[in-house]
Design a protein around this nucleic acid. Structure first.
Lengths: 341, 341
DNA sequence: TTGTAAGCGTTATCAA
DNA sequence: TTGATAACGCTTACAA
């Protein structure tokens, strides 16, 4: 190549990497053209591998998930996040490396060095619930840029991006309070995932902000929502003055399902007799009608925010705000309170 | 790294690249362990770019799409393919590089060298309709392993994997013939996409195999199905002895929609009065009921097959059968023929 | 069984 | 404005 154009390899490099940049100043137009022509006629393209070797960064952002990145079941997949991840990565000129099969028994599933593979990229995004803390912290300790998608305050030093469940839950309660509800009950499952805790906090904050009292019965915490949340129980609560219920969103949608079933079984209409709220998005099979009042987790934006943060870390910049706001969804399951019949 | 283990760089390379292979014979178990331990403690991972440059492989398979890889609309996305791609890649120990933003204005959207980025990987999978032929053939000519997902016979030399529409369509016709239908009409759009042509061929093959005659009217080819395929037309055909219709699947589902609309408008029930078949999967909004008799394109398996083929090419092996069988779907829109009322 | 050394195709740093 | 030349981190003969 350099031969055909009659110049040195270095000159070729100069010409070809100057493309786009305005600073073509260092090369004479004639040489430039000669090189460009030769390149075209040879179909020459700089080898990206060599390029990256020499330039020490490879324009690659990793995505590592502790479960299959593309599970067969679209509902429980990371797909929505990836949409945002890809868009933002593309916008910033990064390509994505999907580290496959963490759980699928794939590429490097085996050893504890499975995680080391990610060092191939300039930085890596992590998704999933079950994180191998040690390995992750190791990466961080080595100065490798790491971002976790989902709140991870327990893992000190690990940067993360998460949805602001607190504010979103508070907003839903505020909406109900504004409609006139005075007694609202939260139905949640009995685990202590950050996502659950956050929602409860937001719920209680919202109550307080509206001048309402949480009281002992305001949070219905049940190991098995379907078992505890009976029609009878609902009827009793309503008789006692409760006019609205909110359920937390979980993987399975169990709380929301149980709540709906119990209300229906109690012979109560919604929002005719009671108002319902869902702190999150409905499971796919219940997505149709009626649209639950609640909020949506902006998965696209979360993915994008994660990439932004990661890109910042890679560039050695400061981390930004890790919380992404959720979107309030008016829905059709909440109306003014109605006194019990 | 080599220092910590007290061995030469070459030994490190030997140890690390022998992994998986049974031929660890050339290295003493002790040295091997020492290197492995050192690597683990340092979190060392061979630089893929360097690896590739040094003429080996880097365990990376590329995925390049000519539209955004992750369109917001899941329905029209490559998601189903990616499920298979990821699974198969994981199973074979490959990681995936998503070359982003071909159309999104991303990473390398610009020049004609956008495609050259894929050379970083050991081989690359291409998805999408609008292929830059020249660039692709260039890659192939350079001996870079390339597989296109979807039939691409026009691009000589480019390996591809596609669905076997011919056999699948033939099977649907055979099913109808077995039910007793003697006059079947194919409704197709008026373009010459390979997918359309294949279906028609399968349709005619199926007719012939069942001892039925295609005849001039067996294929209803209309530029605008909605315009041509009127209720009147359907009624006339039925009066003339036609007892079953099959429509091809297209992006928009236009043919199938038009067929359904016309039949309904003609006051005919299905499968009571006429049987219907769909050569493909129904559009999402019509997916519910009734399930159309027809076939499903096994997108998972297509993705997996593409990876298998690509892996074979990367390994310098022979290409395998590029056609993936579709799955017959009994559905609920076909029954025994009924004489016109 | 392990070490030495020659590339691989760029980029970057100096000189010229 | 251009040309040598030294990295870059690895693989792979070939030598020890």
């Amino acid at each position: 190549m350099a031969g055909l154009a009659g110049v040195s390899q270095a000159t070729v490099s100069l010409v070809l990497s100057a493309r786009g940049d305005g600073r073509a100043a260092a090369i004479s137009e004639e040489t430039r053209q000669r090189v460009l022509d030769a390149a075209r006629s040879l179909g020459y393209v700089p080898d990206p591998a060599a390029r990256r070797l020499a330039a020490a960064s490879n324009n690659l952002l990793g995505v590592f998930s502790f479960t299959a990145t593309f599970p067969t079941d679209v509902q429980h997949s990371y797909y929505p996040f990836l949409v945002g991840v890809e868009q933002e990565a593309a916008a910033r000129g990064y390509d994505l490396v999907l580290f496959t099969g963490s759980s699928t028994g794939g590429a490097g599933a085996a050893g504890p060095d499975a995680l080391s593979r990610v060092r191939l990229a300039d930085g890596c995004l992590f998704l999933g619930r079950h994180v191998p803390r040690a390995e992750l912290k190791r990466l961080v300790a080595d100065g490798f840029p790491v971002v976790h998608l989902g709140r991870r305050e327990e893992l000190e030093g690990v940067a993360w991006v998460g949805a602001d469940y607190v504010s979103a839950s508070r907003e839903v309660v505020a909406h109900l309070a504004e409609l006139g509800h005075r007694r609202i009950v939260l139905v949640r499952e009995d685990d202590d995932a950050p996502a659950s805790t956050d929602r409860q906090r937001g719920f209680l904050d919202g109550l307080a902000a509206a001048g309402l009292t949480g009281g002992p019965g305001a949070v219905l915490r049940c190991a098995d929502p379907a078992g505890e949340l009976t029609a009878q129980r609902v009827r009793a609560l309503v008789a006692d003055g409760v006019t609205a219920f909110v359920a937390e969103e979980t993987d399975t949608g169990a709380a929301w399902r149980a709540l709906n079933a119990a209300v229906r079984e109690a012979g109560l209409g919604c929002p005719g007799d009671v108002s319902l709220g869902l702190l999150g998005s409905p499971p796919a099979d219940l997505a149709a009608r009626p649209v639950p009042t609640g909020f949506d987790i902006p998965r696209h934006r979360l993915g994008a925010a994660a990439v932004r943060l990661l890109a910042a870390l890679v560039a050695g910049e400061e981390a930004e705000e890790p919380l992404v706001a959720c979107e309030f969804r008016a829905g059709e399951t909440a109306g003014p309170p109605v006194p019990p019949r």
